[in-house]
Design a protein around this nucleic acid. Structure first.
Length: 753
DNA sequence: CGGGTGACTTAGCAGAGGGTAC
DNA sequence: GTACCCTCTGCTAAGTCACCCG
């Protein structure tokens, strides 16, 4: 990995001198065309290539760009009434009001009277940089102290039991719990864990046995102990479980809510992350490293000046107390593995989060008014003679059409994943005339694989960007990074960045898909259609999930079910012919399928049925006898079971005969009409089951939730529900309903994205 | 003026919890 | 009532983007 990165860097440097190639392009005097309908601001675009070539700096672009966007803000016809849903003078709500909270259900009869919940979306919006006036909360909840294992549970080294100091035992335990998982089997994870483990062991005084080789460590006893504990927990009575839950709730309670400007709001992650082993995604070089325990001294609290500082046990102190009302976090600490900052924030249903969510979608909606111009421009710029402009245009195309992420640069301390700007030579394969194969790992090391047709000029450009001397490891967009791209976007619309395209295209796609759904059928059918629309969006955004363990068998089961239904149907048709042989000629199409199932197929189905029946009687017998045993009654004689099994045996014989003759036994009183009805029923069930199967298959690798939570404007879902008479619970879970309350309350069936 | 980093959104997964079939 | 399965929630890693500082 290091090697790769090394070579990447080298190649990049080499690239700079390869300017030769594009000189014909970049030398051209002509200013970037983008500006032709703007006044005359070409600098921001050429800034990076200027830098690369070390040309005399242009008078700082960023300030200008800022100024410019400000000017634009004023001149651009503001996207009108979109910004506010409803306006209201809404009083400041000086305290006392917060006495009412959770019981909003009963309260919302008179919604003009906004007691209960705070309807921020009906308020006048300020500039947004001040997040709060007062903020009061109880701080954070720390994980419990480590409890040492019973003395008989130990790590074994080279066959010998090891006495570990508690600190080291804890770390060993972190690993022991994972030995059966992919992480535990990952050599990088093992190595990183082991290094940190040895360190902790040394610091905590060492063990009775000298430990130096990971391979000689035996964690199985510890693992078994954890498994045992899990079992114990599972087999607790529900009363015990309830008691534990109640205790947990009680401890959590104070932390759950805070006071924001005097109003109650929920806190999100008030729990400090417990120590453990870092579980990086994909091929993360630091995966397995020890994530250290965080104490009060590591925590910075953020709250109002006048608010009481949450107390701590004697002798302990908070790391720092801040009163920063320009940020929306309540507490913060630095984490040791990546050196990043972790925050305690408001919950998703809080007004602050809701507001910024609303703004996000409004911004995306605003893009509607500019997208045409942007597309027109980038199509033109694809042929621009300035290399940078071509790269900007091509990247914009990829972001717009394939919903790629911006793709910022990453260090080699992280997994090697890419987005648009960081795409490399090897991630794109070109096949004339215009087929492109994308194959790379994106965010969370999720594979992006797509074989697509692109605009001819895009194809040519990609070819140009791959031109020798570029080789695998080189950046495709060697002039580009997200900040250049975003500066380009800001020219069209203030606040427009690469990620807005994803939101826009996702919501736009959803709107278009919903428009195609006819208002008919049952609620469940409509929900299925809704999910299908959702799935289109999820696919666009490449939201995946790993196929669940049981998926394969579940699919097999459904397939068996379908086969059996088909068999039943065919059987009915055969019976019809037994009653009325002349039908075969009269309705030949109808009877076409009667020989579709092979003997083997039929036999398999028979076997399945027989097996099922046998099991049924066995378990019935057992169940009834268990009950009798418990009630001290006489047990059923074996003969009861045997009688039932005899019935199964007769059925089996019947099937055997049927298989030979091709003729089922005709039940008494059977008529053509009855059979027709049955066939219809079977056909219905077959269609339903097939739909169910398709849904399952289609969904097995696609995660719908991510787009529903982050990309699809919730007002679309609300609109759908109102328009199609679908209860909102069918598309939003309880948490989502809370998160999207602002959307649920503010739109009707005519709303459009 | 560009690299680092703070603050925020977006992401998949594990485990809890709740519903359903037997 | 139990086993199983699927959905939902909580968790925390991994992105994006703006701003700050040397």
């Amino acid at each position: 990995m290091t090697m790769e990165n090394e070579s990447k860097k080298k190649l990049r440097i080499k690239n700079e001198s390869d300017d030769e190639d594009d000189k014909p392009l970049s030398k051209v005097k002509k200013p970037p065309i983008l500006d032709d309908n703007e006044d005359s601001e070409d600098e921001p675009l050429s800034s990076k290539s200027n830098k690369r070539k070390g040309s005399p700096a242009t008078s700082s672009s960023s300030k200008k760009a800022k100024k410019e966007s400000k000017i634009k803000k004023e001149t651009t016809p503001t996207p009108n009434g979109n910004a506010k849903i409803r306006k209201e003078k809404s009083p400041k709500l000086e305290d006392n009001k917060e006495a009412v909270d959770e019981d909003d259900e009963d309260k919302d009869d008179g919604e003009e009277e906004d007691d209960g919940t705070y309807k921020w979306w009906e308020e006048e919006d300020e500039d947004g940089s001040i997040k709060w006036k007062t903020l009061e909360h109880k701080g954070v909840l720390f994980p419990p102290e480590y409890e040492t294992l019973p003395s008989h549970v130990k790590l074994y080294y080279d066959g010998k039991p090891v006495d570990l100091p508690p600190a080291a035992e804890e770390v060993a335990g972190f690993f022991a719990a994972l030995i059966e998982t992919d992480h535990g089997k990952n050599p990088v994870f093992q190595k990183n864990f082991f290094n940190d483990f040895l360190e902790v062991l040394k610091e905590s005084g060492g063990a009775n046995v000298r430990i130096e080789d990971f391979e000689k460590c035996d964690f199985t006893k510890m693992f078994a102990y954890f498994e045992l504990k899990k079992e114990e927990k599972k087999s607790m009575t529900s009363a015990e479980k309830k008691a534990i839950k109640a205790e947990k709730d009680k401890v959590e309670e104070p932390y759950k809510i805070c006071l924001l400007n005097g109003r109650k709001e929920q806190v999100g992650n008030f729990r400090v992350e417990p120590p453990g082993l870092f579980r990086g995604r994909g091929a993360h070089p630091k995966t397995g490293k020890l994530k250290k325990r965080i104490g009060p001294k590591d925590i910075t609290l953020n709250l109002g000046k006048e608010c009481p500082v949450p107390p701590l046990p004697a002798g302990q102190k908070w790391g720092e107390i801040r009163h920063d009302n320009t940020v929306s976090w309540l507490a913060m600490w630095r984490e040791n593995v990546l050196g990043g900052v972790k925050y305690v924030r408001f919950a998703a249903n809080s007004s602050l989060k809701g507001m910024s969510d609303f703004k996000k979608f409004e911004k995306a909606r605003q893009l509607k008014d500019h997208i045409e111009a942007i597309r027109k421009d980038y199509k033109r710029l694809l042929k621009d003679r300035v290399m940078l402009n071509r790269q900007i245009a091509t990247a914009t195309y990829l972001i717009d059409v394939f919903a790629l992420r911006a793709g910022g640069e990453k260090s080699d301390e992280e997994a090697d994943t890419v987005g648009c700007c960081s795409l490399r030579f090897e991630h794109v394969t070109l096949s004339p005339p215009n087929t492109v194969i994308f194959d790379f790992l994106g965010k969370d090391s999720i594979r992006f694989y797509q074989e697509v047709q692109v605009d001819l000029q895009v194809f040519k450009n990609l070819k140009l960007f791959k031109k020798s001397p570029k080789v695998p490891g080189d950046d495709l967009f060697d002039r580009l990074d997200p900040s250049i791209l975003n500066k380009f976007f800001q020219k069209y619309m203030p606040g427009l960045t690469a990620k807005v395209f994803r939101t826009y295209n996702a919501s736009k796609t959803m709107q278009d898909q919903l428009d195609l759904i006819p208002n008919e059928g049952t609620v469940n059918e409509k929900v299925l259609k809704f999910n299908a629309a959702n799935r289109t969006v999820a696919i666009l955004c490449n939201h995946q999930r790993t196929v669940s363990k049981g998926h394969e068998t579940a699919v097999q089961k459904i397939n068996d079910k379908i086969k059996e239904l088909i068999w039943q149907k065919i059987r009915c048709k055969r019976m019809m012919l037994m009653i009325e042989p002349s039908l075969k000629k009269k309705k030949s199409a109808f009877f076409e399928e009667i020989d579709d199932l092979t003997k083997e197929d039929q036999l398999t189905i028979h076997k399945l049925i027989i097996e099922r029946e046998t099991n049924k009687y066995h378990s019935k017998f057992k169940r009834e006898n268990d009950k009798k045993k418990e009630e001290n009654e006489d047990l059923l004689p074996e003969s009861v079971l045997l009688d039932n099994l005899k019935k199964v045996d007769e059925l089996k014989k019947e099937y055997e005969k049927e298989l030979k003759s091709g003729k089922p036994v005709l039940p008494a009183n059977m008529t053509i009409e009855k059979l027709e009805q049955q066939i219809e029923k079977f056909e219905q069930r077959i269609t339903n089951t097939e739909l169910q199967l398709k849904d399952k298959e289609d969904n097995s690798q696609v995660a719908l939730s991510t787009s529903k939570i982050n990309y699809i404007d919730p007002r679309l879902s609300v609109m759908f529900c109102k328009k199609y008479d679908v209860p909102i619970e069918k598309v939003f879970t309880k948490t989502l309903r809370e998160k999207f309350l602002w959307a649920i309350e503010s739109v009707d069936e005519n709303w459009r994205f």
